[in-house]
Design a protein around this nucleic acid. Sequence first.
DNA 1: CTTATAAATGTGCTCGAGCACATTTTTTAT
DNA 2: ATAAAAAATGTGCTCGAGCACATTTATAAG
Lengths: 366, 366
Amino acid sequence: MLEHIYKLFKTFIYLFSMKKYTIKDIAQLAGVSKGTVDRVIHNRGKVSKNAFDRVSKLLKEIDYQPNPIARNLKNNKIYRIHVLLPDPEKDKYWEPCIDGIEEAIQEFLHFGVSIEKVFFNPFDKRSFERQSAGVLRESPDGILLVPLFQKESLVFIEKCEALGVSYFLFNSNIEKIETQGFVGQDLFQSGRVGAQLIHKSLKKNAVIAVIHIDEVFKNATHMQEKEKGFRAYFNDLEGDDFQIDTYKLKHRNSDNLKKTVKYFIDTHPEISGAFVTNSKIHLLAALLRENNPERCIVGYDLLSENVRYLKSGTINFLIHQNPKRQAYLGLVFLIEHFLFNRDIPSVKHLPIDIINSENVSTYLDS
Amino acid sequence: MLEHIYKLFKTFIYLFSMKKYTIKDIAQLAGVSKGTVDRVIHNRGKVSKNAFDRVSKLLKEIDYQPNPIARNLKNNKIYRIHVLLPDPEKDKYWEPCIDGIEEAIQEFLHFGVSIEKVFFNPFDKRSFERQSAGVLRESPDGILLVPLFQKESLVFIEKCEALGVSYFLFNSNIEKIETQGFVGQDLFQSGRVGAQLIHKSLKKNAVIAVIHIDEVFKNATHMQEKEKGFRAYFNDLEGDDFQIDTYKLKHRNSDNLKKTVKYFIDTHPEISGAFVTNSKIHLLAALLRENNPERCIVGYDLLSENVRYLKSGTINFLIHQNPKRQAYLGLVFLIEHFLFNRDIPSVKHLPIDIINSENVSTYLDS
DNA sequence: CTTATAAATGTGCTCGAGCACATTTTTTAT
DNA sequence: ATAAAAAATGTGCTCGAGCACATTTATAAG
């Protein structure tokens, strides 16, 4: 019996403390109507100073948070967001982004959000200019984009700002402080991570190569930032001396590149550590002959080809940039900005995941 | 002008294809009332075969998904979930779980969910029995728990099943196939990851130690599973030969343990690789004298003490079990089960994060 | 064929926020 | 003092799902 009363009491206390206040509750407490409370919350004016003070004091005290469920129930407006990213057909690195985008679409299906994907050719600035102009002509509410081409992206962003269109960047950032928001990896730091992995795996005085592979040498800052971090790590070391050389393997078509890489490997047998600054590491791995335990090859991204060489032991480590999550989070930030007017984070750095042949499978299915 | 018409047309097509069907729409299409549609959706019966077929055909065709926003708006029921986990005061490993739980609470604040934390002493089976019994007496709708003590947890789970209380496990699993659900790391595989990290960092024929440190030797399966994976990795190697020994450093109080560890280190100077199977690795690291680049020390978890030794170079790698995310995801699964009757995943393995001194900071703030 | 009973179907309210519009109160002008 | 204008406040409907209850239709019994 006593226990029963005690339980009732606990339930009461619980309900009391967990009370979720509604506009109606606050109206009652302040002795006004819910219309007035609504006007205070949204600063719509037409409220006497007296009522305003009383209500806003209550709002603060109670830490009122509107019920997001009810808030969006009526929501007539459909927010249109365009995602401007490199065509995954042209560069497989971008494939997982599609999944991330689809996930966000699914999650916000009933929240009055429409998301459209727009691809541009990552090897063609013109394509970016064309597609970005097309996006702007549709005047969406928000734009999530990969600013692969620095200069052109800056122009585009300025147009967005002029038109008052919200935007958010992912994967690569651009050097402009007033940028509205960015989600991606700290590239400098990821270079340091690669450096430590190689450093700890090699003997002293080993010869190490930083290798930039790409069809055309665009997207330079992205890869250079990684190199900076890589070199900074080795500069910070005191005792050890390593020789670090940078190689740029550019090309116009893949046959050409194959030859270039092959020639590079043949003419540099002394190299025992290699840091490839993008997902093209499989091109290098494909041409390495036997697996040498004295060697350490580190690159980026979980492309299926890279994963194959990782599992076979040719590649020692991959750094995971998680493009899927980048795209997903970028969308979530934009959507929550529109729907719940949360403020967009200026820079969100994702974890720098270190992948070897033993943990790779645990990253592939999520 | 033509462009204008084209734009209108596109908007129309868009709205048409993205049409979110409501119960009302379906009722209209099927020529019945929304009440009937509702009865079909929830299999409440009292529907003629004719109407049932017509409606369910439409539901399938349209791939109707109820608006989760509206669905929970009314929701009178408050789902009560209790989280049963080791007291973070007694073992700091569990601290991040609190954040994960708070995050879930915040996220589902307005969805009619109440979450309560219940701690037990991880060094005292009795405490678990007492606290778990207390939880059951409250008869919550769901329970998220860490089955630290295998046998006792099994008994508890059986009681849950008898009472029809939903439950979900995290961090450690128990050997029982019919278990309702588990989120955590694949411990065997994480042992393999640790093994590869040590393997690649050491010379051939190095002497390696698997070290189990704990106040009392409970939680055995957890650590043993890691050791199994560790040894399996080395067994799979063909050429290389490594000597691997297991040491159990138990103790009753921390002074005692310090001595034990010290004695262990002094009497085993030949060991160059060490794999500590839990977060207690800082106890070992604290007693290692100079940093030896020929040495490789690998352990678990981002306790602040472990992170300090990782940054200073005494510890080479930590494997991150992400207890925060485990707790968070466990709750999300339970809540979505109640709210949207999603089915609970039977086993959800989280990524096995490899942490070194360069990427550790990118894991700490998220 | 009528009435009783069961089965099937429809109606209308609820939840909380938001907003248009109706109503009341206050201020200003004549 | 009174009417007109302006400011402040209140009211009532909307959104979609869910559910109790009202109503209609079909079936069985007398």
